[in-house]
């Protein structure tokens, strides 16, 4: 928690507690407050899903059995909506098929009530870490996309061709331009994208278009 990037500091990490039992919500939030973790409580899955967004930082502490939309169902809905917040499940009577299902769907941990403080805090820390990594990645991508917006159409073409490994001469031939023009464009691209080397530029380009890089 010491090396938070400046952009992420604005947002306080929060544990979103969803449980229909008020005493559980109170108990868990009291404990989290005592250890200095921000917590926010919801009584139902519907109540939580009214507020969700990818901008949420932290993790979801979710009761597996809830009235209305259940915990397992809420996990499915989050995935369908591409909301990537990490989920910690808790239940008073979980069965093995249920545990297998939610862990396969990417849950961080499955806690059986009543649970130890360390179990809960470890799970939350793990979830926060993975959420931070997710948000950092997203922030990097956002800045790259922002930089890419300043490129002209011609510069974007040149960058893509450079990233595929063509020489300046080959690019000039393909775009029917002079070698000097290509060199000029390339210089602009390197500057605008804040790339320090050719390798750096290729990496940035891959991040922008992950499908093409893998394909």
């Amino acid at each position: 928690m010491t090396e938070k990037p400046g952009a992420l500091m604005d947002q306080r990490e929060t544990v979103f507690i969803v449980d229909d039992d008020e005493s559980i919500r109170e108990g868990v939030s009291n404990l989290l407050e005592a250890v200095g973790i921000n917590a926010k409580c919801y009584a139902t899955a519907e109540g939580f899903s009214a507020h969700w967004s990818n901008a949420m930082a932290g993790c979801l502490l979710l009761d597996a059995r809830l009235p209305g939309i259940g915990g397992v169902e809420l996990q499915d809905r989050l995935r369908e909506s591409s909301i990537k917040i990490p989920v910690i499940f808790m239940t008073a009577h979980g069965d093995i098929p249920m545990v297998r299902k939610v862990m396969k769907a990417g849950a961080v941990e499955f806690l059986t009530k009543p649970f130890h403080k360390e179990e809960l805090l470890n799970a939350i820390e793990q979830a926060f870490a993975s959420d931070r990594a997710r948000r950092m990645e997203e922030a990097v991508l956002d800045s790259i996309r922002l930089r890419a917006c300043s490129l002209t159409e011609r510069e974007r073409q040149v960058m893509e061709l450079v990233a595929t490994g063509l020489t300046n001469k080959e690019i000039a031939q393909r775009l029917f331009l002079s070698l000097v023009t290509i060199k000029l464009h390339r210089g602009q691209v390197m500057r605008k994208m804040q790339a320090e080397s050719l390798a750096d530029l290729v990496r940035i380009s891959e991040r922008m278009n992950p499908t093409r890089a893998s394909g």
């Binding site: 559980i24 108990g27 404990l31 407050e33 005592a34 009577h93 009530k113 009543p114 130890h116 403080k117």
Partner: peptide, 13 residues
């Protein structure tokens, strides 16, 4: 388990 969970977490807190 519900009251026990609340009880334990309150005790930790």
């Amino acid at each position: 388990n519900q009251p026990l969970t609340a009880l334990v977490t309150h005790a930790y807190a």
